[in-house]
Design a protein around this nucleic acid. Structure first.
Lengths: 233, 233
DNA sequence: TCCCGTATAATTGTATGCAATTATACGGGA
DNA sequence: TCCCGTATAATTGCATACAATTATACGGGA
């Protein structure tokens, strides 16, 4: 009756419902399904070779994540994300990432600290080489390390949620060279504040980091495509 | 294809899955089920007179709300909430309620403003009479008005979640006379800042309001019962 | 031609049956 | 007595059948 976390992760991934859930999540976030598109239980099931039951259960989960909207007796529709939603999330994340950085200062483990340092080292290397794929990956990981280091399951969960939620926007964001350099510098600042044990500084830097990321998106017009997008019907 | 919100609410409430979901949610939050208790699909189904299908779907939703934990092929267990979880949530809420108050200052409608004023008037009345039930109800409603007034679906959703999450703790919190008087005064302060259009002030007051609420809980030992509670296995 | 009511088809909601997995009880061996 | 393997029971995972609801097509009347 001890820790089932690992087992759950594994089993969940290989249960049919788990697979459906992850696949749909991925496809929605990657934009394979258009906003407002209707997802039919049978079509999805056939596509994945499963019956309606696991599909329905996956739908219920996706609804709570806000990725789809289920209208009773009618269907499941892919939810859009508006420019305002993105703005709201960044503002909320700004505050919460700040809190996370502060808490991480108090709780980060030696291993996590090392992974963070390594992450920044690699990020700077790949940035200089222009390896977009790796940079994105490392950027995501930097934030995840911090989420895990803050020693709060609740905050970690919330931030991972929001992080995922704006993923599809972020993908394109880092591709500009100057922003990735600036972003790396900001990461380094946060890391050094955490290492130095200066929670207040880490907080305000993480705070600012999010605002900067958001403003960069605005400047580059990354949000324009979402401006006229409707929230899923 | 227009607004199905209302219809959904209604239908959802009267669909079997919806009923199971709401009932289990209520029972878990009210403490009818003990932490770590196993919920069996058939027992729940029999109790409510439905089959396993709607119960299973409700389980999936409850899991994402963090109220239960589903271990694949084993069962669903009621999740506990530790004193640290409560602390974390209050700290996070403090920041987000502040943001909410600031945004509400910019977006609140005439009707919402009026309801807020009325709410405070009634709260002060019931506080003077010692009507605990009504005070709790009005306190909850005050926050909800603010959530709705901030004009952000995302933030509203997040705050309503956290609000619900700590509900079982909050129930007992307001029952002390002096805290409820202080709380009302703080609500009034926030309301007046919003009315005056001073977003910064509203933010810092809402911020402080949460911290005060949390510290009051600590002072009165409301969290002691959660101290040794384990997170659901 | 357009509107609208009805019949039909498509889709979701729920119940149930079977397979797979996990828990429990029992009995043999040390 | 205790340990442990096996058989049995209980429980979840998934598929399927049927009911309820909603969408669509068609035809008649103005």
């Amino acid at each position: 009756m001890e820790n089932y976390d690992l087992k759950k992760e594994v089993t969940d991934k290989y249960s049919l419902r788990g697979r459906v859930f992850h696949k749909l999540r991925e496809d929605i976030l990657s934009g394979r399904y258009k906003v407002g598109e209707e997802l039919r239980e049978v079509s999805i099931g056939e596509e994945l070779g499963v019956s309606r039951t696991p599909v329905r259960e996956a739908f219920r989960q996706l609804e709570l994540e806000g990725l789809i909207r289920i209208v009773p007796n009618k269907g499941a529709y892919v939810m859009g994300i508006t420019a305002k939603d993105i703005r709201d999330i960044y503002m909320m994340r700004s505050l919460l990432e700040g809190l996370c950085a502060k808490w991480a200062t108090e709780s980060i483990s030696k291993e996590q600290m090392e992974e963070m340092e390594e992450n920044i080292f690699l990020s700077e290397f790949h940035a200089s080489k222009g390896h977009v794929e790796q940079m994105t990956e490392l950027d995501n990981r930097f934030h995840e390390i911090m989420y895990e280091a803050c020693n709060s399951k609740i905050l970690e969960h919330a931030l991972k949620d929001y992080h995922q939620y704006v993923m599809r926007v972020r993908k394109k964001t880092l591709s500009t060279q100057d922003r990735s350099v600036a972003s790396n510098a900001e990461h380094r600042g946060i890391m050094e504040a955490i290492r130095a044990g200066d929670g207040e500084l880490a907080q305000s830097l993480a705070n600012r980091h999010m605002i900067n990321a958001y403003e960069n998106m605005l400047r580059n017009g990354f949000l324009e495509q979402y401006e006229k997008e409707e929230r899923g019907k």
